[in-house]
Amino acid sequence: MPKTHKIHMLLETMSPLTHMMGTNGNEALINREAVIYKGQIRHLPVISGNAIRHKLIREPGANFIIGACNLAGKMNIDQLNYLFNGGSLVESSVSRNIAKIANMQIVLPLYRLLGGCLKNQVVAGSLNVHRGMLICRENSERLSDILPEDFAIDSAIFPAERFIDQYQYTRGDAKKMRDIDFFAAVDELNAQIGEEKSNLMIFNGQTIVAGAMFYLGFVLNNVSDLELGALFHSLSRWNGFIGGQGSRGHGRCKISLIASDALEIAPLIMAYKEHIMGKKEEIKTWLAEAFPSKRKGKEDVNAEKLALDN
């Protein structure tokens, strides 16, 4: 029986978080949203719902499906674009193929949850994702309104600016490495050939400090247990990084569930995994039918399917 679920989670930063909105000169600026606090407009750090949807749900979910169905190295661009980016509307939407949508919703509960775009049809999803709201003084009232009663936020918590810090890195210049040789550097100066442009660059930006906490919320409208399982399964497979500069160790986070109306999560995840493992062939067939290669005609779906099978 389809049900509507509300899931409340906490995201704690384990390393500086750099989720940016743009730059000002050489400085990267943290993503912010406007809120009214005590009659004044404040711009508070926020993790966009778009980033949460992609990094925590869509990407790990797509990776699992590709791994489970052994599809790596066998897909075309449209199939990957659908699985990882939600697809693009590229054909006239006058005609509709309801059977294709229904097949997708049967074999891929995750995409029934997230929605997406077939070549000629936009398919709505069932998942609404809250923005990641920083747990800070300015947000305490808003958070207290949406959190379950047991989790009210103390209004004496730090203000948002206390959670913002700076980082600075220097990109080295390989040519300058020779300057370690003092005599060579002196020779270079004497010969006045050191006028080449340097690639040495200092760059900096704002971060959210490690230890800050964000509220994450998910609303699932009229979903089955399989879709709920798909959500929790994707969250469990998340690599723990969000935002930019993950290669430098930024954005390492951990999430914890604080309230949900789904009591048993493990059986939901198991049921979803079993569903995907049991529908491998149907998933391959559906992907081949919905996103055939451009060079082939629609009648060559079987050949496409054969390529996925091999």
Partner: peptide, 16 residues
């Protein structure tokens, strides 16, 4: 929104 070519490259079949 971007199609992450770096991550997708090896997931594509060779002809793609």
């Amino acid at each position: 929104k971007r199609f992450e070519c770096d991550k997708m490259a090896l997931m594509l079949r060779e002809s793609e």
